[in-house]
Each structure stands twice: as structure tokens, then as C-alpha cells.
């Protein structure tokens, strides 16, 4: 805080109160006795759905939280768009595209493209195997977004490997979120409970039909139901969300 000279005292007062706050935080955290709680039940029942407990919690037990999380990202992406003129009141303002064009060296140009493909493949593997191995939609999506950023840095926004325009990124993001929302609606329609994991059949008494179960079965040892599909939706959303933020902030005009 830069107060005027006469108010230098304020820094001291604020520091004292922050000190009091810090003391209580440290005190609370240093004598902390942890209880497993419902995590134990999640670990006990979770393997019936899919091997990776964290994915099971994210997309099944607490799948609704993940929906909220996805929408935070969407909100942030739209807000960043608003900041740079898309959708402000009184008509859109399109700023000059001032993407810095920096000549890449030959080594960068030669090696970036294959690296991008490898990274994308890695991201896809992480996404599709999210319920078996460590990983999932968020991680896979952000790995693919890294590849996008690499290609933008090396080849420029116009000529990047992905060839995605701003509009198609927006559409992709919307599609990703709609996949999530609609898979939740399937559960609502069939069983009466939103985001019911159709296909995993944890609760057979709900009487969800055979067809739905077969529709959402996924070729692996356990039957994860809709979790892999939710993963794909989230991956699309995170990928396009991060890419949009990157392009918007990257293209901000320098003054």
C-alpha cells in the first residue's frame, strides 16, 4: 500500500492484523487430525464403476461439481472475450489483429509439427484412458491446448497446424459443454436423477433399460458407463476454452 506519508501508520496496523490472521491459520493447520470420511466409501464402492477413483468421484459421485467447474471455464472464456470487444454493449468492437509475428528458426519449424502431433496423441490417450489410468478430460484437454499454443507460437495464428478459427473454437467449446449437459439429461430422462451414470448400473432397481446400458458401454474390463464420454466432452471444452483464452490474450494490442 502506498499511502501518503502521514498515513504510513496504516501499513503497520494492517500488518498487525494480517499477522493475527496468519497466526490463527498456522495454528489451525498445524494441529489437524484428519478423518477419512466418505472417501472411504467412495474407495470401497468406486471400483465397481471404474478403476481410477478420482475420475469416478469427478464424473460420477460428484459429477455435478465438475459441471460447475466446466462452466466456470466457459464463463472465464466469455468474459475474456467481452474484455476484448466481443459482445460488449452497443455492438462488437473488433480490435486490430496485432498478433506478434516473430520469424521462427528452421529448427523450430521442422521440429514443431511432429512434436505437436505427438503431444496431441498423448493428450488423446490421457483423455480416453482417463477412467483407467491417471488422467482425464481436464488433463488431456490442457495437454492438447499446449500443443495448440506451441503451433501458434512457431507458425503464427494464421498458419497454425490446427487451422481452427475463433468461431470454430467457440462452437467446439459449446459442443463440449452440451455433450456434458445432455449426457446428464439422459440420466434424468431414464431414471429421474440428473447425471445418473447410465450404463454403469450401480443401482439396478432404478430400472434403466437394457438398450441404454448397451449404448453407453465402453470397450474395457470394467463398465464405466457414461464416464468416458463425459471425459471426451470435458476434454473438448477445456481444449477449446484454453485455446480461446490463449488466442485472445495473445492477440491483445500493444501500446
Amino acid at each position: 500500500m502506498k499511502f501518503q506519508q502521514s498515513q504510513e501508520m496504516r501499513n503497520l496496523i494492517a500488518a498487525i492484523f494480517v499477522g493475527i490472521f496468519s497466526y490463527f491459520i498456522i495454528k489451525a493447520l498445524t494441529d489437524f487430525d484428519i478423518v477419512p470420511g466418505v472417501s472411504y466409501i467412495y474407495n470401497l464402492r468406486g471400483p465397481l464403476i471404474a478403476p481410477n477413483m478420482i475420475t469416478v468421484i469427478l464424473f460420477d459421485w460428484r459429477g455435478y461439481d465438475t459441471l460447475g467447474e466446466a462452466f466456470i471455464l466457459i464463463t472465464a472464456v466469455l468474459t475474456t472475450g467481452i474484455l476484448f470487444g466481443r459482445g460488449v454493449l452497443g455492438g462488437d468492437v473488433s480490435e486490430k489483429d496485432s498478433t506478434p509475428i516473430r520469424p521462427s528458426t528452421i529448427v523450430q519449424k521442422v521440429f514443431a509439427a511432429p512434436l505437436v502431433f505427438i503431444i496431441v496423441a498423448f493428450g488423446v490417450v490421457i483423455t480416453l484412458g482417463g477412467h483407467i489410468t491417471p488422467g482425464g478430460g481436464f488433463q488431456g484437454g490442457s495437454v492438447i491446448a499446449t500443443a495448440f499454443f506451441l503451433s501458434v507460437v512457431v507458425y503464427g495464428f494464421k498458419k497454425n497446424v490446427f487451422n481452427l478459427s475463433h468461431n470454430s473454437l467457440e462452437t467446439l467449446e459449446g459442443v463440449g459443454a452440451l455433450i456434458y449437459l445432455c449426457l446428464g439429461l439422459v440420466g434424468l430422462g431414464l431414471s429421474g436423477y440428473y447425471l445418473y451414470n447410465v450404463g454403469a448400473d450401480l443401482y439396478p432397481y432404478l430400472g434403466v433399460g437394457d438398450t441404454a446400458t448397451r449404448l453407453f458401454s465402453y470397450p474395457d474390463s470394467t463398465n464405466a458407463g457414461i464416464i468416458p464420454y463425459l471425459n471426451i466432452g470435458i476434454a473438448l471444452k477445456v481444449l477449446s476454452g484454453f485455446c480461446t483464452i490463449i488466442t485472445v490474450l495473445w492477440g491483445a494490442e500493444k501500446k
Binding site: M1, K2, F3, R10, I13, F17, V18, I20, F21, F24
Partner: peptide
């Protein structure tokens, strides 16, 4: 800075 000052004070006092 005004907001930050009072937030600091209230955080301390509440705890």
C-alpha cells in the same frame, strides 16, 4: 488500498 486496509483489519478481527 482503502478496501485492502479494511479487509486486512476485518480478517484479523473476525479470526
Amino acid at each position: 488500498n482503502i478496501a485492502a486496509f479494511y479487509v486486512a483489519i476485518v480478517m484479523g478481527i473476525v479470526m
